[in-house]
Design a protein around this nucleic acid. Structure first.
Length: 820
RNA sequence: GCCCGGGUGGCGUAAUUGGUAGCCGCACAACACUUAAAAUGUUGUGGGAGCAAUCCCGUGCCGGUUCGAGUCCGGCCCCGGGCACCA
């Protein structure tokens, strides 16, 4: 009987103790000849411990890494924890534990679990984002961003989570809710630190084409960056020396602009106040919409509201007509110029608004006769496609595509490219994160001095003084007053100005936890370097990451930020590549009873329980076998029995047949070679399920004729199985007298000559329907096949004569199809 | 609404990318072993008809291309996920 507890314990201890992996599993560093950086997104250590989905992805990466290692690569498979951040802090708050203490405990638990699953991690390079040795360099990256003009402060309405009591980046607001706690996010006017990710929009977008990444992620990033090309056009305000710029992708419809709409936050309203006749009403509306939570604003999408600025008229620059100006919250302040020209005849939203407020609808584009009819609203009067211009003065009759640029030129507008992407809001009013390493000096500010001309008073903490250590603060609860808990820690924020030495104040916000994870892959290979964030030679050798695996939920968070940070660091001269991950694959999700696992549903699978009951090998294989790696699937206990039985059979065959013959039989080498090919290809595509299936088929064959099995063949079988089931294979291999670990062996190779069968089953079809199957030699001529087909009893029985056959299609090695 | 995935036995899935649909496993059934059960082993298992050989139907639905379609094309339906007043 296979006792997984005994066998696994034995090897787990041996591997850890005398480190037989050392020469191979250790990070090979500068000396490596064939480096392969195999990375999995590091987990944030939740209190519940490792999620079963996490176990699956980590073992998936390990299977891949072990195969690569067998292929002769020096594989670097690092591990660490993304322990800083709101998630961990919220948990600490909930249970009334200090995050520093909680971190230490969950770290221990995570590393225990990760060690248990038998992965070939490079443990010496482990890192944690809350370790001062690590966040020193997170802070250094912040200072570099600042010095290079990519970090700036700005006051603007920002996302505010009332539960987490902090601001959030746009990427962290999911359907109007906080990514971390699910609370509806509101807006607050606050001055915050931002990273200028928008400067990189075009490069981030352009490079997507070149990346070997899962399509889901590439498309998500492309959409998030959201490039649109159009024009910026200015509308004059009547009786004022003022203009309002709008961004439009449809300048061809300019003659149809019958009114304008400004976002409630638009600044120009202040300058027009004296002429607004209904100022009270306007101010009420602005106040109301500003306090409205984002979610409500979206939910009301169908019922558009707005208020006219009575007494104000804008001039349509195309036809010089006076048009009314509205304020409405369907126009967003953060996109384009915060103002639009409204063309109700050719835009759904404007159409809806115009109907409600009884505004004129003027058609200016006429659909071509054969145009896509679906694009015409049944209501009539709304058409959003292209066509021929009408009601557009001298542009009548022009194709709308051409008219876009012609009309823009005519009114003095200019071509403009807009992105959906907005700058990365980086500061957080929380405790558990890397303090933003900046100092503000009022004395310098008053004199207009500062490290950057446009940011008087601000200085980056010099590298020598890093890290700015996060102090132990007993009351780390966020205050909700727009300041971090660090703001009330005098000993922390009191400091001296690096320039004039007067009393100055440290920034007390911490950085977004996504900054911690935006560069950890750069640190791993240099994790033990105390002097620099990363070693240049090592980085040159090991990066970019050869294979990166993680969740698609990070498409526009971690994966985009990492690309941005890498690009910026390249521009600063610290790296010689700009894309951090050459290949990225998103893993699938593991559900239980068809639903996402969650505590509230009570369907959380505890890995410890299952690993102890079935063993690490069985669980690894089950998780790999249940579905293609990138697809994910439902966790079912019944399925575990299949692999459990398989491993038990491997165990008993190995132990009953310790003395095997030296020679390989001809027959078995055919299937062996096939299995090697199949398994290798499957693993490369992350189709572990089919690789395991191939191994199961091979074992079935082996068991059918145990006497014909050679020692060589059995060893090859174990080698192929070893990435999936490292414990049992190691034990069986040592049982047949191997001194060397099986995990240091080379992968068996296959001979494509030996895969070829001597004969095959010829399928005889009539009009594409299978009528007979006859075994024939692999080398056979077309004439011979035709002869065999026509003389088949079943074909004869059908009464098919040669004269009736119109055609015969022969596919060598497969079939012949008689067409009658 | 838009953009991605995906619909194949009772279930998870497979099919060398246009060439035998259902590999491997789960579940189920019968048999063997056993006093018995479990475990294990053997055999069977898409649906329908037939004692049988065999035949018909079958990859969400309708149509097309082809000697041949799960795979390609056109039009729908359903499920899952992402984005969403981006002008």
């Amino acid at each position: 009987m296979f006792d997984h507890k005994k066998v696994e314990k034995k090897w787990r201890e041996k591997w850890l103790k005398d480190g037989i992996y050392e020469p191979k599993f250790k990070f090979a560093g500068k000396e490596s000849k064939k480096p392969f950086y195999s990375l999995m997104m590091f987990p944030y250590p939740s209190a519940e411990g490792l999620h079963i989905g996490g176990v699956r992805t980590f073992t998936g990466v390990d299977i891949y890494s072990r195969f690569k290692r067998m292929m002769g690569f020096d594989v670097f498979e690092p591990i660490g924890l993304d322990g800083f951040g709101i998630h961990s802090e919220n948990y600490a708050l909930k249970v009334g534990k200090h995050p520093m203490k909680h971190a230490k405990e969950s770290e221990k638990n995570f590393y225990r679990q990760l060690g248990y699953i038998g992965n070939s991690f490079a443990w010496k390079e482990a890192l944690e984002t809350y370790d001062p040795d690590y966040y020193k360099w997170t802070q250094w990256i912040f200072t570099e961003m600042f010095r290079n003009g990519l970090a700036y402060r700005k006051k603007q309405p920002v996302n505010w989570c009332p539960s987490c009591k902090t601001v959030l980046a746009d990427e962290q607001v999911i359907n109007g809710k906080c990514e971390r706690c699910g609370t509806v996010v509101g807006k607050r006017d606050l001055e915050q630190w931002f990273f200028k990710i928008t400067d990189y929009a075009e490069r981030l977008l352009g490079n997507i084409e070149k990346l070997d990444w899962s399509d889901v992620v590439r498309i998500a990033q492309r959409n998030w960056i959201g490039k649109s090309e159009g024009a910026e056009i200015e509308f004059r305000i009547k009786n004022y020396e003022l203009g309002i710029k709008v961004f439009t992708t449809r300048p061809d419809t300019l003659f149809g602009a019958t009114y304008m709409v400004l976002a409630p936050e638009h600044e120009i309203v202040k300058n027009l106040e004296s002429s607004i006749k209904n100022l009270g009403e306007v101010n009420d509306y602005i106040k109301k919409t500003r306090n409205k939570p984002e979610e409500e604003r979206i939910a009301e999408g169908k019922e558009k509201t707005g208020v006219e600025l009575k007494g104000i008229k804008a001039i349509n620059p195309a036809n010089k007509k006076e048009i009314p100006v509205f304020i409405a919250d369907y126009v967003l302040a953060g996109y384009g110029t915060g103002a639009i020209m409204a063309v109700p005849a050719h835009d759904e939203r404007d159409f809806e608004f115009a109907k409600r407020y009884k505004l004129p609808i003027v058609e200016v584009v006429s659909p071509l006769i054969n145009a896509d009819k679906k694009r015409i609203n049944a209501d009539a009067g709304l058409y959003i496609g292209g066509g021929i211009l009408i009601n557009s003065g001298q542009f009548n009759g022009m194709d709308s595509e051409k008219a876009k640029w012609e009309i823009t030129k005519f009114v003095g507008g200019k071509k403009k490219i807009q992105y959906h992407l907005r700058d990365w809001l980086i500061s957080r009013q929380r405790y558990w994160g890397a303090p933003i390493p900046m100092i503000y000096c009022e004395v310098c500010a008053a004199k207009g001095k500062g490290e950057k001309e446009n940011m008087p008073g601000w200085y980056a903490v010099p590298e020598k003084q890093l890290p700015v250590k996060l102090p132990f603060v007993k009351n780390f609860r966020p205050q909700g007053d727009g300041r971090s808990p660090l703001a009330s820690v005098k000993s922390f924020h009191e400091t001296k100005c690096p320039r004039c030495k007067s009393k100055a104040r440290r920034e007390t916000d911490v950085s977004d936890t996504f900054l911690d994870s935006a560069w950890y892959f750069l640190r791993y290979p240099s994790a033990n370097n105390k002097k620099r964030a990363w070693d240049t030679d090592i980085t040159k050798k090991w990066l970019p990451v050869a294979s990166y695996i993680g969740g698609a939920e990070h498409s526009v968070l971690h994966l985009l930020y990492s690309r941005f940070v890498t690009m910026a660091l390249k521009d600063f001269g610290y790296l010689d590549f700009e894309e951090p991950f050459s290949r990225f694959r998103a893993h699938g999700l593991i559900t239980k009873d068809g639903a996402k696992m969650s505590k509230s549903k009570g369907n959380v699978v505890n890995p410890d329980e299952y690993f102890s009951k079935f063993g690490a090998d069985t669980m690894r294989m089950y998780l790999a076998f249940l579905a293609p790696f990138e697809q994910g699937g439902d966790f079912r206990e019944s399925g575990i029995m299949g692999v459990s039985r398989f491993l038990a059979r491997v165990w008993s065959f190995g132990n009953l047949n310790k003395k095997l013959q030296k020679n390989a039989s001809r027959q078995m080498s055919g299937i062996m070679n096939k299995t090697i090919k199949r398994a290798g290809e499957s693993v490369d595509n992350l189709h572990y399920n089919t690789a395991i299936s191939a191994l199961m088929i091979l074992l079935n064959e082996i068991e059918k004729k145990p006497d014909g099995i050679s020692a060589l063949l059995w060893e090859d079988f174990l080698k192929l199985l070893s990435p999936f089931a490292p414990f049992i294979t190691e034990d069986l291999c040592s049982g047949i007298g191997h001194k060397k670990s099986i995990h240091l062996e080379k992968c068996p190779t296959y001979d494509s000559e030996l895969i070829k069968e001597e004969d095959f089953e010829l399928v005889i079809q009539v009009n594409g329907k299978v009528r007979d199957r006859i075994k024939v030699p692999a080398v056979i001529s077309r004439a011979e096949v035709e002869e065999i087909a026509l003389s088949s009893e079943k074909i004869k029985a059908l009464g098919i004569e040669k004269s009736k056959i119109k055609n015969m299609i022969f596919v060598p090695g497969k079939l012949i199809n008689l067409v009658i």
